[in-house]
Amino acid sequence: MGSYLNPGNKGFQESLNSKIYVDKTGLIEKTNAALNTRQKFMCVSRPRRFGKSMAADMLAAYYARGEDSAELFEALKISKAESYEKHRNQYDVIKVNMQEFLSMTHSMDEMLVMLQKYLIFDLMDHFETVRFRDEHNLIQVMKDIYSKTNHSFIILIDEWDCLFREYKQDKEAQKKYLDFLRAWLKDKDYVALAYMTGILPIKKYGSHSALNMFTEYSMTDPGDLAEYFGFTEKEVFALCEKYDMSFEEAKMWYDGYQLIAHRQTGNEIYSMYSPKSVVEAMLRHKFGTYWNQTETYEALKIYIQMDMDGLKDSVVRMLAGDAVSIHIGTFSNDMTTFATKDDVLTLLVHLGYLTYNSTAETVSIPNKEVSQEYINARRYFR
């Protein structure tokens, strides 16, 4: 067990030990179905504090060799799935948080050097009987391991998009980062599953993406993962009963993210709630603003100030309860490239400050908690 290779169960164990834990292990059945298929590349983007890191911890605990996680999962939903026993603790898992490496370095080049150095250290320490062609090349090291063991890896990348949020203007660094991820992951036999989480979908250059092998699941198109993008109405109702809190108030404060799962049997609409907000409200026994006390609030102020194509007027309309038409197709999946008001509104959907109705192609302010932040920023509407 290393820091990044098969990192253990501690993260998921802490989630299970928490006062409030909502079972989202059904996600594992979805990732099991993608293993060693053309759908093995998954990028899940959703707002801050919507359970992205918890999901990565859960997947690491389930898949990783070295520790038997049966006791953790035996009472959870995934234990009833047909694929449960087949894949539990059967893979070598690499789990990295890109924000950690970005915070420890001062440039993109330095970050990538450190990332590869640390991963190679864990890999060579664990697979000590393997002879390596190039001990300084991460891709070749993983190829050599796969050639010797015939065991593929599950790669979990948390905060994959942090570079695009902190190096907003550095297009060269962004391109170099995407090229590294493509070279590391694409067309590699040693990848059984690559699962990335972030706030932003994968960056597009023109009409193309360097990571076009990934299936994206986002706030504008959650696919069949919609029910794992927060707490469902049923889950919130159960928590309100348990903690003797008003479900009607919880709905007013935190409901409003309408995510549509498009399926062969028809569309299914999920009414999703911010997990951070619901948990805080239950534990504090008080409804209020909890989720949006993050750095993304600064983005809300900055982008409203731009007032592109009458953006402020659209915000005023949405504060009055209106929905505003939007075209999301031109959004470049970064925080600086904006051609129209629609691009800014699409970014606010991914940040969690708006909700998108894919059927009507409109956006609106989801709930009282979020609307309060627009009210706080009302001086920028003038």
Rank of each mutant, 00 (worst) to 15 (best):
V316K: 15
K276M: 09
N357C: 12
I94S: 02
H87Q: 13
L348M: 15
K186I: 06
M213I: 12
C240M: 15
M308C: 13
F121V: 13
S364E: 06
Y270P: 02
S152Y: 04
N150S: 09
M306K: 15
L347P: 02
K95E: 00
N137H: 15
S69I: 13
M108P: 05
F121G: 06
P222K: 03
K276S: 06
L311C: 03
K368Q: 09
Y303L: 12
E172N: 10
C43E: 00
M318P: 06
Y353S: 02
A194Q: 00
L300Q: 08
L35V: 14
L76T: 09
F73M: 10
K368C: 05
K143F: 10
S103T: 03
K188A: 02
V96A: 07
K176E: 13
F73P: 04
Q258N: 12
D68T: 14
T220G: 03
K186L: 08
L351D: 04
E85N: 14
D144F: 05
R65E: 12
A360I: 14
D23A: 10
E71T: 14
S83H: 11
Q39C: 04
S152G: 07
T197W: 01
H350G: 11
I304Y: 07
S364A: 13
N17C: 06
T232A: 09
T215K: 04
L115Q: 05
L102V: 12
K117H: 14
K168N: 01
L16V: 08
I155A: 01
V370A: 09
P222N: 04
G310L: 13
T25R: 06
N32A: 13
D57A: 04
W160Q: 01
D189G: 03
H87D: 13
E369W: 08
A61F: 07
I260K: 14
H208C: 09
T232L: 10
M58W: 09
K204D: 00
K341G: 07
M335W: 07
M308Y: 14
R379V: 14
D189A: 12
S107N: 11
Q293S: 01
K148G: 07
G266I: 10
L259M: 09
S83N: 12
Y84R: 12
L27H: 08
T149E: 15
G352S: 08
Y297S: 04
Y243E: 08
K341P: 03
L354H: 07
A339S: 15
E295L: 08
K188P: 01
S53H: 01
Q174W: 11
E216N: 01
S103E: 03
M219K: 08
T25I: 09
E249H: 11
D179L: 15
Y374N: 01
G198E: 00
Q13G: 01
Y270R: 06
G51R: 03
L185H: 03
K80F: 14
D158I: 05
V96Y: 06
L351T: 02
A75N: 15
L119R: 10
L351E: 05
E100H: 14
Y270V: 04
Q372P: 00
L123P: 02
D122M: 11
